[in-house]
């Protein structure tokens, strides 16, 4: 299998910042503000009414547009399936024409950035784990179709008006991330991708979701390591989602991994950007700590479905 690389990480956040107290007072959370602070959250980002998920995606991709030429595919993932359509639902109700339910943001992205040779794939049933799923899919494309040498991965979500900005006890932010996966040597070599889906827990309660978190997380990480022929001691950094920090304090102990090497410094200021946290944390890790050549990073995500995904990267 030829090697695949990930780089050019970018992101865009919802326009407005709100503290956990403001979120709580606005009725956007279920948990108490103090509990969310205790979990590590201090603020989150939400979109103004006129800002769409597509706007966020477009902003994230704009930051890396110089690297887009030659893109052969766009993988556009959303946590919420409704963000996979930017059509006007009221027009569907008015006309009963379903084309208003198929106004795909990936197509707009291809047109707006003139990625004429790129075809599009929508990925919208992996919930919070979508970005890792898109890396995996990109790797499959690149290795199975040699004519494709560059894939743009985008994940973008904003919560619909009236939604709670809390899921499974985590404070949510609107936002988008983008990155490029390609076959030319780049910042990170993609060593392994792995996922587990437990569809029987598709309708799991928050308690069941939390209840399955530790053992499924442990399992998907161990299986990913095994697939790469590695052990936790071979990993320099774990880059998780922005979810309750206490969960990772526990997981690090279970994995016999130094908690100080679990990097999610944006938890406090970014919140849980549903399917894009890892990319933001990875960029923060590059900026704040620097990553040495040869260091391996383990990216992990869990999401509804229930889905667990894990990716191992190696700094070139």
């Amino acid at each position: 299998m030829s090697e695949v690389y990930v780089e050019h990480l970018s992101f865009a956040l919802g326009d407005e910042k709100r503290s956990v107290e403001e979120a709580s007072e606005s009725g956007l959370t279920i948990s108490k503000a103090a509990d969310l602070r205790d979990a590590g959250f201090t603020q989150h980002h939400i979109c103004r009414p006129q800002t769409t998920a597509y706007d966020l995606a477009s902003r994230a991709v704009s930051d890396i547009k110089e690297y887009l030429p030659g893109t052969g595919a766009i993988i556009y993932s959303t946590c919420l399936p409704l963000n996979g359509n930017i059509g006007d639902e009221s027009k569907f109700k008015e006309t009963r024409d379903v084309k208003y339910l198929m106004d795909f943001p990936a197509s707009h992205l291809q047109a707006d950035f003139a990625l004429d040779r790129a075809f599009v794939i929508g990925l919208n049933q992996q919930a919070c784990t979508g970005v890792l799923g898109s890396l995996r899919l990109a790797r499959m494309l690149l290795t199975s179709e040699p004519q494709i040498q560059r894939v743009l991965c985008v994940t973008s979500d904003r919560f619909p008006p009236g939604a709670l900005y809390e899921q499974a006890y985590n404070l949510i932010s609107d936002g988008a991330v983008a990155c490029i996966v390609h076959t030319s040597p780049g910042a990170f070599r993609l060593l392994a991708c792995h996922a587990i889906t437990n569809g029987s827990m598709a309708r799991a309660s928050d308690d069941e979701t939390v209840g399955s978190y530790f053992n499924y997380t442990y399992r998907v990480i161990q299986e990913t390591l095994a697939a790469a022929g590695l052990d936790m001691k071979d990993i320099a950094w774990v880059v998780p989602q922005n979810t309750n920090r206490k969960a990772w304090q526990i997981l690090a102990r279970l994995l016999r991994f130094d908690y100080e090497r679990v990097f999610f410094s944006t938890l406090s200021t970014v919140g849980h950007l549903i399917s894009g946290d890892n990319i933001i944390n990875l960029r923060a890790l590059m900026d704040e700590r620097g990553i040495r050549s040869g260091e391996r990073l383990l990216l992990f995500m869990a999401g509804y479905g229930l889905n667990w995904q894990c990716v191992i990267l190696e700094k070139t």
Partner: peptide, 8 residues
């Protein structure tokens, strides 16, 4: 101690 903040 953490379960207060991430469980029902």
């Amino acid at each position: 101690t953490a379960v207060d903040t991430f469980s029902g």
